[in-house]
Design a protein around this nucleic acid. Sequence first.
DNA 1: TCTGGGGTCCTAGGACCC
DNA 2: TCTGGGGTCCTAGGACCC
Length: 422
Amino acid sequence: MTDAAAAQPLIRRTAHLDMDAFYASVECLRYPQLKGLPMVIGGARRSEDDLLERVRRARPGREWTARHLAEIPVDCFARLKDYTGRGVITTATYAARQFGVGSAMGLMKAARLCPQAILLPVDFDEYRRFSRLFKAVIADIAPVMEDRGVDEVYIDFTHVPGGQRAGGRALARLIQKSIFEATGLSCSIGVAPNKLLAKMASEFNKPNGISILYEADLQPRIWPLPCRKINGIGPKADARLQSHGIRTIGELAARDEAWLVAHFGKSYGAWLHAAAWGRDERPVVTESEPVSMSRETTFERDLHAVHDRAELGAIFTRLAERVAADLQRKGYAGKTIGIKLRYDDFRIATRDATVADYTQDARRIRQVAGQCLKRVPLDKRLRLLGVRVGNLVRLGADGGLLLPAAAQAPAASAADREPELF
DNA sequence: TCTGGGGTCCTAGGACCC
DNA sequence: TCTGGGGTCCTAGGACCC
């Protein structure tokens, strides 16, 4: 390090990286013929060979296998208008958004707006594969990286070579380029003094953009934005702020902290004030332990606890088995077991119970969850059922010792039957 | 024919203990 | 008998995020 460099103190630089239209972009690597078309991903349960079946029928006389995906004619893909059933959009391409279609919208509603849009099922395994790929590229360059889901990360640039140059722009460019070379995917990066500002900055210049933010940019570039742009202000808080005439972050910053605390509570009020002033001390966290694991499912039609008891019981058992499998695969056990249900009117009820021993056993989870179900009103129809295990501990190599005796006992013949709902 | 699935964190009351 | 804390754990619901 030169004397000049030693004299120059390091400035904290935090980056937020956001993959551009991640799911749709991954699908376009597989199906390049879909690039630029209105396309929606979501809803349908994955049926692996559905598309190949269609193309074999529509274009007989040649071989169609997984190696020929890029050659499948566009007219062989499923259209939104042909979809029947429940489900929401996970991703819509820009071409589809122009029709007013957007994520979280019901597929049936979307089909009215853009019937010709191509509908692809969600393929989480494939998205996870690309997620691991691009994160490995980043970790190679800048090891202090925080996972924020399948298509987002925070990166601490502060101590990375080049991380201080041009406010982080040089390093951001290197990361962008390396990800593109390894995956063919583009991303947007914001670099700022902290995570809060970096997250907002990464949205400034999409797609394939880089935005550099300094503290002096707070007033001209952040304050004009609507409060909703702050990560942590959702629809409810935004509506409450608006009811007080606060629409922009600047208007939020203009309020006294004491006033915000009086109206939004000690913790949230103080946080709102700090956020509006661009203050955020949270570090980039590279490791974290899961708090809970859950599985839930929305039924194809609403089910009644009495009339559809057998069907509901089978689904319940399958959910418990899936959570147990997740726990076992990842090496965790938990002692708080709970259920979640959504009634046909969309109200949600949860119940949970904490047991003495940590478990990762499907039958034990199913049994405790069944007791939870007894404590909740079951007169109305249900549209969703979920099973959750919380209070997790990681199991070591000798983790089997943590399992309760019930899990170690072999199944009695009675336990092989579908258990009662409760 | 609206409205997925998998998470985290916070709040608030009650039980229970010191 | 009454009064007063603090701390932790448990449970239910809700806001928010990807």
